[in-house]
Simulated assay, not measured.
Amino acid sequence: MALSRKFMMDGEQVVTTTRTHVKVLFVPLVILLAVAFAGSFLAARAGGSGDGYVRWAVVAIAVVVVLWGSVLPFLRWLSWTYSLTTQRLVEQKGILTREGRVIPLSRINDVSYEKNLNDRILGCGTLIIHNASEEAGLELRDIPHVESFHRQVSDLVFAAHRGSDESV
């Protein structure tokens, strides 16, 4: 889900859009598989006892657990994006209620990244952005190909700062 054209300023272009690494969906996948296995096993064991009410109760509980433990986290992951444009960094998230955060590139003071061993194996990391208004940096966790994203942000920040120095 890229940044909508209606939210962009004149002359602004999207450089890249990303979301967190797919590794955040590992636990929801395990929940889906475990509930599917346990639910089908228990529904088969219940058989036709009690006019099938037990079987339907097991199926209903399994559906609720799958929706809560797998579908909802997937929708959260799908709707949470980071868009880098030629003028700003935009974070958007939310399924029913959308919220966002915008950091103009000209206000960014420092861009760094961190990768632990798991991140190095999976090819992701945490991008840390310090801007002029905060002491604690904004941490974008589990960004795929974090070095490439870091390089793109840094290049655009340097260009934004060069442009603001020339206008003074």
Score class of each variant (00 low, 15 high):
residue 98 R to Y: 08
residue 162 R to C: 03
residue 48 G to P: 01
residue 115 K to A: 10
residue 128 I to L: 14
residue 154 S to L: 12
residue 101 R to K: 13
residue 106 S to Q: 12
residue 123 G to C: 13
residue 163 G to T: 06
residue 63 V to S: 13
residue 15 V to F: 07
residue 126 T to Y: 07
residue 56 W to H: 12
residue 76 R to A: 06
residue 158 F to T: 11
residue 31 I to D: 02
residue 33 L to H: 01
residue 118 N to A: 14
residue 110 D to W: 02
residue 20 T to P: 09
residue 91 E to D: 14
residue 28 P to K: 05
residue 66 V to L: 12
residue 77 W to L: 10
residue 135 E to M: 11
residue 111 V to E: 00
residue 57 A to M: 11
residue 63 V to Y: 03
residue 39 G to M: 03
residue 27 V to F: 08
residue 82 Y to V: 15
residue 59 V to A: 04
residue 28 P to L: 05
residue 157 V to E: 07
residue 153 V to H: 03
residue 5 R to G: 00
residue 95 I to P: 02
residue 22 V to Q: 05
residue 56 W to V: 02
residue 167 S to Q: 13
residue 11 G to A: 00
residue 124 C to Y: 01
residue 106 S to V: 15
residue 42 L to I: 08
residue 3 L to H: 04
residue 146 V to R: 00
residue 76 R to W: 00
residue 20 T to V: 04
residue 108 I to A: 02
residue 96 L to R: 03
residue 138 L to A: 11
residue 65 V to P: 08
residue 13 Q to T: 11
residue 46 A to S: 14
residue 55 R to D: 04
residue 124 C to P: 04
residue 140 L to Y: 01
residue 109 N to G: 06
residue 135 E to H: 05
residue 158 F to G: 07
residue 159 A to T: 13
residue 13 Q to N: 11
residue 26 F to L: 12
residue 8 M to T: 10
residue 166 E to F: 08
residue 90 V to M: 10
residue 51 D to W: 01
residue 93 K to H: 15
residue 117 L to W: 14
residue 112 S to G: 14
residue 59 V to S: 02
residue 49 S to K: 02
residue 12 E to Y: 03
residue 81 T to S: 10
residue 95 I to F: 08
residue 39 G to C: 09
residue 105 L to M: 09
residue 40 S to V: 08
residue 28 P to D: 00
residue 133 S to Q: 12
residue 24 V to K: 00
residue 32 L to G: 09
residue 20 T to N: 13
residue 52 G to W: 07
residue 130 H to Q: 14
residue 88 R to A: 09
residue 58 V to I: 15
residue 5 R to A: 08
residue 101 R to G: 14
residue 119 D to L: 04
residue 161 H to Y: 02
residue 19 R to H: 11
residue 154 S to F: 03
residue 91 E to H: 12
residue 18 T to D: 03
residue 39 G to D: 07
residue 143 I to F: 08
residue 108 I to G: 07
residue 54 V to R: 04
residue 6 K to M: 02
residue 10 D to L: 01
residue 44 A to K: 03
residue 72 L to Y: 15
residue 21 H to F: 11
residue 114 E to C: 03
residue 76 R to P: 03
residue 142 D to R: 12
residue 90 V to T: 09
residue 115 K to H: 02
residue 165 D to Y: 05
residue 60 A to P: 06
residue 102 V to N: 13
residue 132 A to C: 06
residue 119 D to H: 11
